[in-house]
Computed example of a mutant assay.
Amino acid sequence: MIELLKAGLYDSIQDLGRFSLQQFGVPYSGAMDQYSAKLANLILGNHHDAAVLEWTLLGPNLKCHSNALICVTGAVSDLKINKHAVKQNMALRIQAGDTLTFGAAQKGCRGYLAVLGGFQTELVMGSRSQYANITAEFRLKKGTRLPIKEQTLPKQLQKASVKTPTAHFDTKLIEVFKGPEYDALSETQQRALTSKTFTVSKDSNRMAYQLNEHFENELEPIFTSLVLPGSVQLTPSGQLVILMRDCQTTGGYPRVLQLSEQAIDRLAQKNIGAELRFEF
C-alpha cells in the first residue's frame, strides 16, 4: 500500500486508456506521455499497460506501507527517498515506512511512478485510468491509499539507468499529418500552419492544449464528426486547439492536422508558454 501524505498539483492513476468504447462517448484517457509511462513499466518488467501514478508540475509526497520496487520517469524533479536524492529511469527499492518526495518539475511537465505489478486500483471498462464520471474519483487526494501487489524484492538491483532522449523534452518540432479538413485551407493558410511559432496557452489540460496565437479562419464548421487524441481543431475565432488524452469523442470544428503518437507524448511534457512548430 502506498499513501499520499501530500497531493501534488494534479495526481492521477493512468494506464494506456480505454479502447473500443468511443462509440458510446467514452474518452480514451490514459497517460498523457505514454512513452514515459511505458518506459517506467518496462524497466520494472511490468506489462507496458500496467497502471502508474501520473503527476503534473509538482509531485506528491508518498509513504510506503510495504516493501516495493519502483521506477520514476518523465519530468525531472528533485526525487528523494527518506530525504536522500535518488535517480530516475532505474529500478529503486523502497521499504515499509519509507517516504518518497518529488518536488517541482525542473524539466518537462509530467512525471510517472510505476510499481512492480502495477497499481491495483479499481478497474472500470477495462482500464484503471481515472476520469470524471467514469471512475469514483478523477484525481488523487491527500490520504488516498493505493493498493499494490505483495512483492518479494530482489537482493540485488542493476544500477544502470535508461537515458531519455533530450528531444523528448526540448524539441519545438511537433510531428503532424494532414487532418481531414486540411485541404479546405487556402495555400496561404497551409503555409502559415508550418511556418509560424505557436505557444502553449494557460488554458491547457488533460483534455486539450490551446495555443495563444490566432490563425486566420474562413472555414465553415463541419457536421459533428469523430475526433481523437492529437486532432488539431481550428475554432471559428481562429484558435488552434490540440485534443489530448481526455478529449471528447466527437467535435464540430475543422480538423486541420493530426499529431503523431510521439508528438502527443512530447507535447504532454510542455508547460505554459512553451514554443512549438508543426512539421509534416
Rank of each mutant, 00 (worst) to 15 (best):
L39A: 08
M125D: 03
L157P: 11
H168K: 03
Q151P: 01
Q88V: 06
K172N: 12
I13A: 04
P154L: 08
V72T: 06
S29G: 10
P154W: 07
P229F: 04
R277Y: 02
K155H: 02
D11P: 13
P254R: 10
D183Q: 14
P236I: 10
R255Y: 00
N271A: 14
D246T: 07
S225L: 01
P254T: 07
F223A: 15
T250F: 05
P180V: 11
Q130K: 00
K38E: 06
F119V: 05
S186I: 07
N46R: 10
I174G: 01
G8E: 05
L185W: 11
P165A: 08
Q120Y: 07
A50Y: 09
Y112H: 06
A268R: 04
D98E: 03
Q239T: 10
L58I: 15
E275D: 09
L257C: 06
L228V: 11
L257N: 07
K141N: 13
H214S: 12
F24Y: 15
H214Y: 12
C109F: 09
L4A: 12
Q151C: 14
K159C: 02
G111D: 06
E150H: 14
V256E: 07
I222H: 06
F169Q: 01
R18W: 09
Q269T: 08
K141P: 01
L267I: 01
A68H: 12
G238H: 06
A160W: 14
T188F: 06
E137H: 09
E150Y: 11
